[in-house]
């Protein structure tokens, strides 16, 4: 995974994001390269999710720009839509369409947005569902599935668009502990295939296992950046040490 000079896919360039008067990100830049798994960690409210949302054009920004393979994404829907087809996003609370079956959920965008052949999409959707162990759920509705199953469907829904980048926004945060694994296994298997991903997570063990590069974010700034090994084993900044310590407990 370490050929040098890999192509830059998404770049957020000197962006500033404010909600009303609160600045979330100030002059923030980050590039994501082909085949790379970038994991963003950091305390709540540090702007992690906002970065993903900006990469997918879901958040207006006040300054700076987002480029996709060098092409600037402007505010017009046409331009954003083209990029969004190539950037798959998976959300914390699944966001499956409750009135559509699992298969319909997966097929909607490839058929309606990408105008692909229905039969071919269906075939692929079924294959992908089988891959995450949910083939027999194709005619179920989201409410009939567990949280972990719903999240796997959401991943399949994103995959079926053939995205070049996948964004995962705290995808296990709403799950019961025993369901976290089944979802993370799917993401790990995608990483092994060399998919480009940006992951926001609170699962540190998972982050360490999957990340090519870890970004530690605090108050809208990159506080520390490095390989998984560097960041988790030898954190440099005090803030990162403090953050990582909050995940371990000692018996008093």
């Amino acid at each position: 995974m370490s050929e040098n000079k890999k192509e830059e896919i998404i770049k957020v360039n000197h962006i500033t994001k404010r909600y009303d008067d609160n600045s979330v990100l100030e002059d923030f830049s980050l590039s994501v390269y082909e085949g790379e798994v970038v994991v963003i960690v950091g305390p709540s409210g540090c702007g992690k999710s906002t970065i993903l949302r900006i990469m997918n054009g879901l958040e207006p920004i006040q300054k700076g720009e987002v480029t996709y393979r060098g092409e600037k994404v402007d505010g017009k829907l046409g331009s954003i839509t083209r990029i969004r087809e190539k950037v798959g996003m998976v959300f914390q609370s699944y966001e499956l369409f409750p009135h559509k079956t699992i298969l319909q959920n997966v097929m909607l965008a490839p058929v309606l947005v990408q105008k692909r052949d229905k039969k071919e999409v269906k075939e692929e959707a079924l294959q992908l569902l089988a891959r995450v162990g949910l083939a027999e759920k194709k005619d179920s509705y989201p409410r009939q599935l567990s949280g972990g199953q719903k999240q796997r469907v959401a991943i399949v829904r994103a995959l079926c668009m053939h995205p070049e980048v996948l964004l995962f926004d705290e995808v296990t945060a709403a799950l019961d502990p025993e369901m976290v694994r089944e979802v993370l296994e799917v993401i790990l298997s995608l990483a092994k295939e060399g998919k480009t991903m940006v992951i926001v997570t609170h699962e540190m063990a998972f982050a360490e296992a999957i990340a090519d590069r870890v970004i530690f974010l605090d108050a809208g700034q990159i506080e520390e950046e490095g390989t998984a090994e560097e960041f988790f084993r030898h954190p440099k900044s005090e803030r990162a040490k403090q953050f990582l310590n909050s995940f371990t407990y000692e018996k008093k």
Binding site: L58, I83, R84, E85, G88, E95, Q114
Partner: peptide, 8 residues
Amino acid sequence: EAAFSMGA
């Protein structure tokens, strides 16, 4: 939002 994120 999910629909938007898929380029709808």
